[in-house]
């Protein structure tokens, strides 16, 4: 059964079907949120909030929406709301000071390099490279143009390379 069929089931009242969708997507959604925010607790809260929102908004789902994109877009909105509530603008994520994660010591070189980038770079790299999404899908999720995504990915790759090289030298 496809995600879209499962979501149509949720919509028609078989709310248990949401557990199937959770099972399939919570890890990748969490990965996206964590890589973007670097905050475990916040990311877990946001995953939960996103699925709760899906339940509330289930009637707005249309079967022609690919479920994955819809899910991530809702999650992104929740993330924006979160920062807005913290009186930080969306752009302000950059300045957001994430707590130190003890697990950071076990992380690979590439991961540490990624962690040092600006959140908006981490975000596009995670979505395009780790989640295998197309520019157009990413554009829908983060709410900028496709060209905007493309240029952001380019800058992110460059920054990642610099960060990687810099890390290696220290």
């Amino acid at each position: 059964m496809s995600d879209e069929e499962a979501m149509m089931e949720v919509q028609s009242g078989n709310t248990r079907m949401l557990s199937v969708l959770f099972e399939r997507h919570h890890r990748r959604l969490y990965t996206y949120l964590f890589r973007t925010t670097r905050d475990r607790d916040l990311s877990e809260d946001l995953v939960q909030d996103t699925f709760e929102k899906i339940m509330r908004k289930r009637h707005t789902y249309r079967r022609e929406y690919p479920f994955g994109g819809w899910l991530f877009r809702i999650a992104k909105n929740m993330l924006n709301d979160h920062y807005r509530n913290q009186k930080l603008s969306t752009v302000g994520i950059e300045d957001f000071d994430a707590p130190q994660d003890p697990r950071d010591v076990e992380r690979s070189h590439i991961e540490l390099a990624l962690m040092r980038l600006k959140p908006e770079f981490r975000e596009v790299l995670t979505l395009t490279k780790c989640q295998g999404m197309r520019y157009q899908e990413v554009a829908n999720i983060i709410g900028i143009s496709e060209t905007g995504v493309k240029s952001r990915v380019h800058r992110a790759v460059k920054a990642l390379k610099d960060s990687y090289v810099e890390l290696k030298m220290t």
Binding site: T15, R16, L18, S19, F22, H26, R27, R28, Y30, T31, F34, R35, R40, S43, E44, V47, Q48, F51, E52, S108, H109, I110, E111, A113, L114, L125, K129, C130, V157, L160, K161, Y164
Partner: peptide, 26 residues
């Protein structure tokens, strides 16, 4: 090299309590 390493980065592992919380809520 950086690019392919990035691609092979495994998904993050959320804590068990996240899944419990979801199940409980559902």
């Amino acid at each position: 090299k950086i690019w392919s390493e990035l691609e092979s980065l495994p998904d993050e592992l959320p804590s068990q309590k996240m899944e419990h919380r979801f199940t409980h809520w559902l």
